[in-house]
């Protein structure tokens, strides 16, 4: 209950409110800045040529980001497809089967995985994974979309595990007891009852994983090869994020090239906004 009339309380109420407003101001500021700096290049290049152009060659005046868009989508989906089963089964184990000791071990390992800086993922990927892929598939270079997908899959694993575990933990014990009482085995109960009850939490986990994978740059710039090809599993590819990172430092100020990178940032931002809206819809449906 809130107590009125005390000046200290009033002041702190104001402080908290101001802090809350600050985040809103940041988001608005970034949005406005991205739109303002991203629109000119889109206007100059043309929305169709920009979004659907297949060739990115700044020195030749060609700015098509379709390869980046497809790469980001393929890479993210690939990572989720690999990471989801693994993460979900880990979550079931942690939530339902794990003993105290094994649970603690796995949990802290997952937490550590989440805490590893992305540049370290990239480094390990570059030194270990890329040569391994090259040798395993007999490629000229192992820096491919496939390598990026593997790195992203490991990176989003802790998010999927954590959020799904919380969701599975929150399933009322009665549901499971009811299922067991009807003669279902543990496995049947967890897959058919617990997961069903926790489905919106699991959906949240997936969406968060997607958001994380879409926005990642540092780790994949080191393993994806970074050439602006249309994506193929064993081709060198460039993501929306890495497109910005790799060329921003060298694009000269005021050039169309630099503006086009801002526009790429705007497209990426819109993707993230879309992901967040979907996330909100899912959680709101849950609340209703």
């Amino acid at each position: 209950m809130r107590k009125h009339g005390k000046p200290v309380e009033e002041i702190f109420h104001g402080v908290f409110f101001a802090c809350g407003l600050l985040s809103v101001a940041f988001v608005l500021g970034i949005t406005v800045y991205l739109v303002v700096s991203g629109m000119p290049a889109i206007a100059e290049i043309g929305l169709g040529d920009f979004l659907l152009g297949r060739v990115w060659k700044p020195s030749g005046g060609q700015y098509g980001i379709l390869p980046f868009i497809f790469t980001s989508i393929y890479g993210t989906l690939g990572a989720v497809v690999l990471s989801l089963p693994l993460g979900l089964l880990t979550a079931v184990f942690l939530s339902k089967y794990a003993g105290k000791r094994s649970g603690r071990l796995i949990r802290s390992a997952v937490e550590l995985l989440a805490g590893i800086p992305s540049v370290v993922y990239g480094l390990v990927g570059m030194i270990v994974l890329v040569p391994a892929i090259q040798a395993a598939f007999g490629l000229a270079s192992g820096a491919t979309l496939f390598a990026a997908i593997l790195v992203l899959a490991v990176m989003i694993l802790p998010y999927i595990v954590n959020v799904s575990t919380t969701a599975l933990d929150a399933v009322p014990r009665e549901y499971e007891e009811g299922s067991l009482a009807l003669g279902a085995t543990d496995t049947e109960t967890y897959f058919k009852v617990s997961m069903h009850a926790a489905r919106s939490g699991i959906a949240t986990a997936i969406i968060q994983g997607i958001g994380r994978a879409l926005g990642e740059a540092m780790a994949i710039i080191m393993v994806a090869g970074n050439v602006a090809n249309m994506p193929g599993l064993f081709k060198s590819v460039r993501f929306l994020t890495t497109a910005i990172v790799s060329e921003m430092s060298y694009a000269s100020y005021g050039s169309l090239h630099r503006d086009a990178l801002f526009s790429t940032g705007l497209v990426l931002f819109l993707f993230i906004v879309a992901v967040n809206i979907i996330l909100n819809v899912i959680t709101r449906r849950e609340d209703a």
């Binding site: 060659k57 020195s59 030749g60 570059m126 030194i127 890329v130 040569p131 090259q134 000229a140 270079s141 192992g142 820096a143 710039i221 080191m222 090869g225 970074n226 050439v227 602006a228 060198s236 460039r238 990172v245 790799s246 430092s249």
Partner: peptide, 27 residues
């Protein structure tokens, strides 16, 4: 070879290029 290079990797630093070449006999 302006704009005509067919690359299998496009890296953003000298160190990264050396690491990549050092780890692959194809490179």
């Amino acid at each position: 070879t302006e704009d005509a290079c067919v690359l299998s990797q496009e890296l953003t630093s000298t160190g990264a290029v050396i690491t990549a070449v050092g780890s692959s006999e194809n490179a």
